[in-house]
Design a binder for these strands. Structure first.
Lengths: 159, 159
DNA sequence: GGCTATTTCGACGGATTTCGACGGTCTGAT
DNA sequence: ATCAGACCGTCGAAATCCGTCGAAATAGCC
């Protein structure tokens, strides 16, 4: 019910069972309701009902995630951006770029952090010079090329 | 076949059909094989076979992702870390922390970038002072508190 | 070219899952 | 006490999943 990118923070409190359900789906998003029910001690229908509520409320979603490295995108980087003027406009312009998969406004020595995915170094250079630095209001950028990804979790909130 | 965290980059080339399948599952990870088959012009069994290969090879995985904000984690931040000595050891120590969901070695003015998820500012302060800065080899840190998340995609590689 | 091994696909059938509906229990408010 | 809502288990029909099969396409290899 909340529009994309704008989520009214509600203090949704999950009980242990819902957390267990989420954990099951974090292990395998295609696991059947019956199997989850066995694992968490609930009937199939009850699990189904809870999953539906969790997804409808935006607490959880089941999606496919892909590994950039295995798909020929050998160069990832985080771009720190300093902005003059409205940071929101720049963030929107960054978000409109295909190569950008993550944009966040921050407080600190950068106004925006953006993660980018490129096929190689040449693409990264073009992206920086011809697309990112061409955005109105971008004052300076700093690039942090990824050397090795150590940890990447999607299981916030169930620990 | 590849051990966790270590993936030999193979030039796996996806055809248009596999990309279409991935797109379907990125929209809804619980969509049925039959429905996907109808959308991409393949039989149910063929879709199932391809999905299995995609997941087994590590190209794709179907998982549940949760929204930290909706679960009471109101403070997220990116931590830039400067390290003296072996950056790998520090990265492993960071990855062992529960509040850390993302760790990457980088080239640039930071050696490591780590994303953290906290319930509030007090937790963030404790995390920084008592856990992160206590790690052997951590020379200095810089914190970029998240103000607003603009874009977050999981669909690398299908564009 | 000619041959074989492998891959990919559609079809089939039985086991399983999904889905909606129904009724029961519990809790809190009136 | 009574009602409403939340939550759960059971049930049956429809749909899906899953293993297996043979055919067609593809990729090597001599």
């Amino acid at each position: 019910m909340n529009s994309l990118g704008k989520s009214i923070a509600k203090p949704v409190q999950l009980d242990a069972v819902s957390k267990a359900i989420i954990e099951q789906l974090q292990t395998d998003g295609r696991r059947s309701y019956a199997e989850i029910g066995k694992a968490v001690g609930l009937s199939e229908a009850a699990v189904r009902q809870r999953v539906q509520k969790l997804t409808e409320s935006g607490v959880m979603q089941v999606v496919a995630v892909t590994d950039p490295m295995q798909l020929g995108f050998y160069r990832q980087a985080m771009i720190g951006v300093r902005v003059s003027g409205d940071t929101t406009l720049v963030a929107e312009a960054l978000g409109a770029l295909d190569a950008v998969d993550y944009v966040v406004l921050t407080a600190g020595s950068f106004d925006i952090l953006a993660e980018v995915v490129c096929e190689n170094d040449d693409d990264l250079i073009d992206l920086l010079n011809k697309q990112i630095r061409a955005i109105e209001g971008v004052q300076s950028t700093e690039t942090f090329v990824y050397l090795k990804l150590f940890k990447q979790l999607y299981n916030w909130g169930t620990r």
